[in-house]
C-alpha cells in the first residue's frame, strides 16, 4: 500500500513529465499535433493499396452497421496496434533516455515509463477521435458505444504499460532488448489480424484441420494472442457497432490486469538498483 501511496503522490510529476513528452515532441514543427496523424494515415494508405486493392483482402461487412470500407476497418485495428507499439518502444527506452535524471534525483522511477504510456495515450486519443468522426461520416452509429470503447482503451493502456514496465527494466540490464523488441513487434503485428481479416486464417485453418493430430486448430492458436482479442473487440464496437463478445472482453480484461500487475511487480523489485545499473 505504501508503494501505491507513493505513486499517487507523484501524480503531478507524472502529469508534468507527460506534458514534457507531448509538448516537446512536435515543438517547432509547422503542423504540430497533426503530425501524430501522419503515420497512421500513411500506413492506412499503404496497407489499403496493397492488401485491399492488390491482394483483394475483403473483411466481412460491418454487422449491423453495414459499413464496407477497408480503410476504416483497418484503422479500427491499426490505431490500437500503433498505440501498443509506440508505448512499448517509448516506455522501453524511457529509463535509459532519462539516465541522467535517475542518477541525480530521487523520485518514484515508475513515473518515467508511465509518462510515456500517457503521452502515447494522448496521441492515441486524438487519433481515435478523428477515427470516430470518420466512422460517423461513413454511416456508423458509434456514439452509444463510446463509453465501452474508452473502457477498452484503458484496458489496452494497462496491458501496454505492464509490458513497457517489464521491458524498461530488462533494457537497463540488457541493451539488446530494444533490438529484439523491434523485431518481435513486427512479427507480432503480422500474427495479429490487423491488416487481413481473421476469416482468411479460418479458411487455412479449416483446410489444415487439427494441428499435430490434436483437435487444436490454427485459429485457436491465433486467438491466444491477446492483441487478437483486443482488435476483435475494438472492431465489434467501432466498426460493427454491436455488443462485444463477453468472453473476448473478459480475456482482454484479464490480460490487461495480469500484464499490469506483473509489470509493476517486476519494476518495483528492480527499482532500487536502477541508478547503479544504468
Amino acid at each position: 500500500m505504501g508503494y501505491i501511496n507513493e505513486v499517487i503522490s507523484s501524480r503531478e510529476l507524472l502529469v508534468n513529465l507527460t506534458m514534457r513528452e507531448v509538448k516537446g515532441k512536435y515543438k517547432r514543427t509547422v503542423f504540430g499535433q497533426l503530425w501524430s496523424l501522419a503515420n497512421p494515415l500513411a500506413a492506412m494508405l499503404i496497407y489499403t493499396f496493397v492488401f485491399a486493392f492488390i491482394f483483394k483482402a475483403h473483411p466481412d461487412r460491418g454487422n449491423p452497421s453495414g459499413l464496407d470500407v477497408f480503410a476504416l476497418w483497418l484503422l479500427c485495428g491499426l490505431l490500437p496496434w500503433t498505440f501498443l507499439a509506440t508505448t512499448i518502444n517509448a516506455g522501453l527506452g524511457s529509463l535509459i533516455a532519462n539516465a541522467g535524471l535517475v542518477q541525480k534525483v530521487y523520485f518514484s522511477r515508475i513515473v518515467l515509463p508511465l509518462s510515456n504510456v500517457a503521452a502515447s495515450g494522448y496521441n492515441w486519443l486524438f487519433e481515435m477521435g478523428v477515427l470516430v468522426v470518420a466512422l460517423s461520416i461513413a454511416g456508423a452509429f458509434v456514439l452509444p458505444w463510446l463509453p465501452l470503447v474508452v473502457v477498452l482503451m484503458v484496458l489496452l493502456a494497462l496491458f501496454a504499460a505492464g509490458i513497457a514496465l517489464m521491458l524498461a527494466v530488462a533494457n537497463v540490464y540488457f541493451r539488446d532488448t530494444q533490438n529484439f523488441v523491434g523485431i518481435l513487434l513486427q512479427i507480432w503485428m503480422y500474427l495479429t489480424p490487423i491488416i487481413y481479416p481473421l476469416n482468411l486464417v479460418q479458411d487455412q485453418s479449416d483446410r489444415i484441420g487439427g494441428l499435430f493430430g490434436t483437435s487444436i486448430t490454427l485459429v485457436d492458436v491465433f486467438r491466444l494472442n491477446p492483441m487478437e482479442n483486443f482488435v476483435d473487440v475494438f472492431r465489434q464496437l467501432l466498426y460493427d457497432n454491436r455488443w462485444p463478445n463477453a468472453s473476448t472482453f473478459l480475456v482482454c480484461t484479464l490480460w490487461a490486469f495480469g500484464s499490469f500487475i506483473v509489470g509493476v511487480w517486476v519494476f518495483r523489485r528492480n527499482e532500487k538498483n536502477l541508478a547503479e545499473a544504468l
Binding site: R20, K23, G100, L101, K104, V105, Y106
Partner: peptide, 13 residues
C-alpha cells in the same frame, strides 16, 4: 539533494 542543477530541463520548453 542538489547533485546536479537543471535535472530534467527540456531544452525546447
Amino acid at each position: 539533494a542538489l547533485l546536479e542543477v537543471g535535472s530534467g530541463f527540456h531544452h525546447e520548453l
